[in-house]
Design a protein around this nucleic acid. Structure first.
Length: 582
RNA sequence: GUUCUUGUAACUCAGUUGGAUAGAGUAAUCCUCUCCUAAAGGAUAAGUCGGCAGUUCGAAUCUGCCCAAGAACACCA
């Protein structure tokens, strides 16, 4: 159990010993540092329950707290706040413990198997800046959940079974009508057929076909028919689909690799299609699948419900299955293959209604056990400065690749070429670029829309990825230089900065737990900055390696190493790497 | 129209299970490199927390009404 949690439990017991019951207790870091390290605000609410003055309650609790040698400077202020600080001895001991084993100070949770669905990449379409958030968020949540003791399986869940693919295949058919894929009499093995299409072609074909379909009704109708064909696994069409997925997936993976995003599974909607028949059987058995206006739907609206709740549309009137169908089938697939305790979906907030529908249908048809938790983790839209979803000047969406290039160019201007070896420049620039972009994305709460501007993501001054990386590298450099002298034991707290840093370190478990609960990384990003900037202040004020007092120097080295290790841990959760030098 | 989200410093955002004096970064002005990487550190200035009312010892946070912006609302995904 973490140090802070242990203290919290003890204080809870102390409050109980004073005669008061309290449900949960979290030790709040004080916002009045002049009065103490921490504040206890619960006396006011206890006063209402016990019909006693808050001051009198605070007095009693204070009396009990004073018996505990870990605390000092206990005082009561205002209407009944109890302020308290930790004794130096306690803090030194805590620092040494965190230095020896950082992970022992993280509260492990009861282990669950979680499937995490994020990314939102669509086959044959280039990743654009809008895909950034889902991937960042999902990847970091995966890492956070694993750190807290969960088993997480991440799935890219590619969009590869809808009309866009119908359009792409149609256009390929127009351009290469003689391909064996389109020859019904072909008897050979399609896997051996070369598809003369590169990913670059695909990125050109889709927008072309999509635009054409908007004005050409016959073309669209042809695409619809093709969509139905591969959805029914019709020979040739299903095979070319798989081929296209392969080509596109390689390219998508390159970008995700660059961003340090790793999927355990690269399943797509097409893989879930194998479970569509089972899905329909389950729905039919329960008489949930009904005909409506030529389509097959499932009603999920509750009686007396005012909010708009359209039915799920499983099969369109033209016979195609929708993404609602594949999402339901995917739940079946995951039940059979993984049998998870929880399934999380990271997707844009505009998809909230969709997931509400899917979850309702899942419950109604009992596709999974009621104990299986389905969680939708929505995030805000990336808007342009006009408040509308971000577009480039020519009206298109900025590709993720061009954003990366743009930031990389800026990054390269800042690298210290006296320190970084020539052959390391590219790698270093890549790492910093990813950190710059991801960190900027994590800073705001996941649910709020934010203004996207390339400038914002190119920012390197202040509360940014490069700041954290630079500082971390400096700690590492210092530790390397002081390595021969470190004896790994702190024995002194010199002043308020040391003290403040240790108090901040102690708060780690609460930051992690809260981030996990709200499924947002902004607290971790902010905590990382707070800790780093406190350390930087300390670094600027003390010449650690030149310090002549050996006891003090050792204490500072231990502090440095602990902050360094924690930075590495948190950067890893956010999915950021640290370069050697920069 | 129905439902939902948002409105905090010049800008971009934190803070929303009610707590003390509302925080960061940027931009602005001014300091600090003979010294462990100055992509650093320090200082100053910047706010009717959209508006009005209510609940409370106490409200940016909860409730109601209003104003403004955005999103979703079956045959796209």
């Amino acid at each position: 159990m973490s140090i802070i949690k242990t203290v919290e439990n003890d204080i809870k017991k102390i409050i109980k010993d004073s005669g008061y019951e309290i449900e949960s207790f979290v030790l709040q870091p004080s916002n009045r540092k002049d009065l103490g390290d921490y504040q206890i605000n619960d006396c006011m609410s206890l006063a209402k329950i016990y019909h006693e003055s808050p001051i009198s309650i605070a007095e009693k609790i204070k009396k009990e707290l004073e018996k505990d040698l870990r605390f000092k400077d206990i005082n009561i202020a205002g209407p009944g706040f109890i302020n308290l600080s930790f004794s130096d001895d306690f803090l030194i001991q805590a620092l040494n413990q965190m230095h020896d084993d950082l992970k022992s100070n993280i509260d492990q949770q009861e282990s669950k198997t979680i499937v995490l669905d994020y990314g939102g990449a669509n086959v044959s379409k280039a990743l654009h800046v809008g895909h950034l958030r889902s991937a960042n968020l999902g990847e970091a949540l995966k890492r956070l959940a694993r750190l807290l003791g969960h088993k997480v399986i991440s799935d890219a869940h590619l969009g590869d079974f809808g009309r866009p693919l119908g359009l792409v295949i149609l256009e390929i058919k127009k351009r290469y009508p003689n391909l064996a894929y389109f020859d019904e009499s072909y008897q050979g093995n399609y896997e051996e057929i070369e598809l003369p299409i590169t990913n670059k072609d695909l990125e050109e074909i889709y927008p072309y076909a999509s635009t054409k379909a908007k004005t050409d009704e016959a073309y669209l109708e042809e695409a619809r028919i093709i969509t139905t064909k591969f959805q029914q696994h019709e020979r040739g069409y299903y095979d070319i689909l798989k081929k296209i997925v392969e080509i596109s997936r390689k390219e998508i993976k390159k970008v995700y690799d660059f961003l340090n995003i790793e999927y355990d599974l690269w399943e797509g909607e097409s893989d879930a299609s194998n479970y569509v028949n089972e899905l329909f059987q389950i729905l039919k058995d329960q008489e949930l699948l009904v005909e409506s206006e030529g389509a097959k739907i499932v009603e999920v609206k509750e009686e007396n419900e005012n909010s708009p709740m359209p039915p799920l549309l499983l099969v369109t009137s033209s016979g195609a299955i929708s993404y609602q169908t594949t999402d339901l089938a995917t739940i079946l697939e995951r039940k059979h293959k993984i049998n998870p305790d929880e399934i999380w979906y990271c997707a844009d907030l505009r998809q909230q209604l969709h997931f509400e529908q899917v979850f309702r249908a899942t419950r109604k048809a009992k596709l999974v056990d009621d104990s299986v938790k389905l969680e939708y983790i929505g995030f805000g839209t990336m808007n342009g400065s006009d408040g509308k979803p971000f577009k480039t000047r020519d009206g298109g969406v900025m590709s993720l690749k061009s954003l990366l290039e743009l930031v990389k160019t800026e990054t390269k201007k800042r690298i210290n070429y006296d320190i970084v070896q020539a052959q390391k420049v590219e790698e270093t620039a890549n790492i910093i670029t990813v950190a710059t972009i991801k960190y900027a994305d994590f800073l705001s709460f996941r649910g709020t829309d934010y203004i996207f501007s390339p400038e914002k993501f190119s920012d390197v001054e202040g509360k940014t990825g490069p700041y954290i990386l630079y500082s971390t590298i400096r700690m590492k450099s210092l530790l390397l230089k002081g390595q021969s002298e470190i004896q790994e034991k702190s024995s002194r707290i010199n002043n308020n900065i040391d003290r403040d840093i240790i108090i901040t370190l102690l708060n780690l478990p609460n930051v992690l737990t809260k981030s996990y609960e709200i499924k947002s990384l902004n607290d971790i990003a902010d905590y990382l900055y707070t800790l780093t900037s406190k350390y930087n202040k300390f670094y600027a004020e003390n010449k650690i390696l030149q310090e002549e007092n050996e006891e003090l120097k050792q204490s500072w080295l231990v502090l440095t190493k602990t902050v360094y290790n924690l930075n590495l841990l948190l950067l890893d959760i956010l999915g950021l790497k640290v370069p050697e030098k920069m």
